[in-house]
């Protein structure tokens, strides 16, 4: 199996004052993978993925994406390189319609320059946005105002916006938080579907979601990587059980 490393960090570090939120993390993710990052609250998971997406600047260390050093690249350029990020707290345009929300994302991909007029019409943008909405199951809610959607649908809209970017890597920050069981089941299907074309990195607390979706799991604690391996290996790892699974059980 030809395995291509999509993203790689070396010694990635972020300190907030005296707090070592992320400390010297070496991390790799292969193309096509579904990877979960787990760990107790305050383990640095969110800070870590924010370092990948560029929302937070690193104190030291490097991030390499598709063979290119992106450590100094601002967030919006990383998105254009193919790293999409969905927020932990639902972060949509409340007063816009579902379709318009996704259109903003498609717009970025099809018409990246602000002022140049290329041949992509609004109709093309809207068609692709509608397609992304259909993928997550919001196809029949295109004209609804996003702020009035049920919470579960807002989360799906969030994913649809990430999808519409057609990223190489989709980062999902606690995507199932606050969803009902049936919504979670649907969400798992969506992620599997997405994974056919995209590498997925998710931070997740719901162990059921992690165990059924992830091929590899990275366990973080106190800003460092505690363990890494297949779901089975992680379940049986003594250190992980002591630090995390045991504590929350």
């Amino acid at each position: 199996m030809a395995e291509v490393v999509l993203l790689k960090t070396k010694g990635l570090t972020r300190h907030f004052g005296g707090l070592k939120a992320v400390e010297n993390v070496d991390f790799q993710i292969k193309e096509g993978e579904i990877r979960a990052i787990i760990g107790p609250n305050g383990a640095g998971k969110s800070t870590f993925v924010n370092l990948l997406s560029g929302r937070i600047k690193s104190t030291s260390g490097s991030v390499e994406f598709a063979g290119e050093d992106i450590s100094r690249m601002p967030a919006h350029k990383r998105v254009r390189k193919g790293i999409a990020y969905t927020f932990q707290i639902t972060n949509i345009y409340g007063s816009m319609s579902v379709l318009e929300n996704i259109c903003v994302a498609v717009h970025n991909r099809l018409r990246p320059s602000l002022l140049s007029r290329n041949h992509v019409s609004e109709d093309d943008i809207e068609a692709e946005a509608a397609e992304a909405a259909k993928t997550v199951g919001l196809g029949d809610r295109l004209e609804e105002v996003a702020g009035t959607l049920a919470y579960g649908h807002q989360r799906l809209l969030e994913v649809a916006m990430g999808l519409a970017l057609q990223p190489k890597l989709l980062i999902l920050d606690e995507p199932t938080q606050g969803l009902s069981d049936s919504e979670i089941a649907n969400f798992k299907e969506v992620v599997r579907e997405v994974n056919k074309t995209t590498t997925v990195l998710l931070i997740e607390h719901n162990m059921d979601v992690v165990m059924t979706l992830a091929e590899q799991i990275t366990v973080m604690e106190r800003g460092t990587v505690l363990a890494e391996g297949t779901p089975d290996a992680i379940m049986n790892n003594a250190a992980v059980q002591a630090a995390y699974l045991g504590a929350s059980a």
Partner: peptide, 20 residues
């Protein structure tokens, strides 16, 4: 639409790949 996107949620717009 981009102007309104910045007004409604600048961080979100940046994370959709726009130089806000």
């Amino acid at each position: 639409r981009l102007l309104v996107a910045v007004r409604e949620n600048e961080d979100r717009t940046r994370m959709l790949g726009f130089d806000t």
